[in-house]
Design a protein around this nucleic acid. Structure first.
Lengths: 154, 154
DNA sequence: TATTGTTATACTCTATAACTATA
DNA sequence: TATAGTTATAGAGTATAACAATA
């Protein structure tokens, strides 16, 4: 049986005043919970996000997916390769000869259907300490900071 | 001259409804800005955070630092090794024979003094789109989600 | 000229597991 | 028994740089 003695906590008054620090810490903790919830599906949060993006944007190309995920083309390539070799996403001929169009396979659709409730549950768990009004406020405030952009590679 | 054509943006109505997704995206973008601001000091956000934590908690041990940074002992070790070989942090004998106590060196103090304004500036830049009241609300709401914990390794 | 896909490569970060020493 | 430090190793994730093909 684990005794789990209380461990000393560190002070961080300077960093706590900064939004970036709090965002980072909150994000790390929520991401860890979501990662844990997704573990039994053997998929990472980023790849689950990619699946959802492909479903909502059927026929999108890899570069657009990369921009949405805030990674460059080479990294988007890796993600799509992984999902493709896992039989979850497929590349089809795109709107011109140098782009390809991404779609979920049947298996991808089924996996995403199974995934989304787990993500929602982990999400709700992560913010369970917040009042409903705070959750709404957080969503509203975070939206512009999380907005997709159309600029260069990261 | 770069033409910078508008790139297609992807829809993500499902994920946008989730706080975890928005936290992650917002955090990625803010982290990128802070990383950029710290580039000229040749230090990563995590190491800058570690410096600040050691200053605020002189004599703390590596494991406590690791818990504050949400990484395990081995990772904390690497961070301290890097800061130590850079002459920014030093290990001194701790409160007992199996712990060591961390302190900033003179160089560490000076670097952190130079770093903090850059971090603050990047932080302010990252949230410039928010109203002052929203910034305050965000800080307050994020605080419990970012709270340090005393549990197991990540 | 700019964009897309692709490949190869390297780097950073983190985790796991094992070991030692100490509490 | 549990904790702290250490080491070696492996894996994920991402960036850079180059190239070919296409727009």
């Amino acid at each position: 049986m684990k005794r789990n003695f209380p461990k000393p906590l560190l002070h961080h008054p300077v960093l706590s005043a900064q939004i970036g620090f709090n965002l980072q810490m909150a994000s790390l903790r929520v991401a860890a919970q979501i990662r844990e919830a997704l573990a039994r599906f053997e998929i990472s949060p980023a790849k689950a996000t990619a699946l959802s993006l492909v479903r909502m944007n059927p026929g999108c190309d890899q570069s657009a997916l990369g921009r949405a995920l805030l990674v460059n083309r080479a990294s988007a390539m890796k993600i799509v390769n992984s999902l493709s070799s896992g039989g979850l996403v497929e590349r089809k001929p795109g709107r011109n000869l140098r782009t390809n169009a991404l779609f979920l396979t049947e298996a991808g659709e089924r996996l995403l259907d199974a995934l989304l409730p787990a993500i929602e549950q982990a999400d709700a768990l992560a913010v369970r300490e917040l009042e409903p009004t705070q959750r709404k406020a957080l969503r509203r405030i975070l939206a512009p900071l999380a907005k997709l952009h159309g600029g260069e590679d990261p």
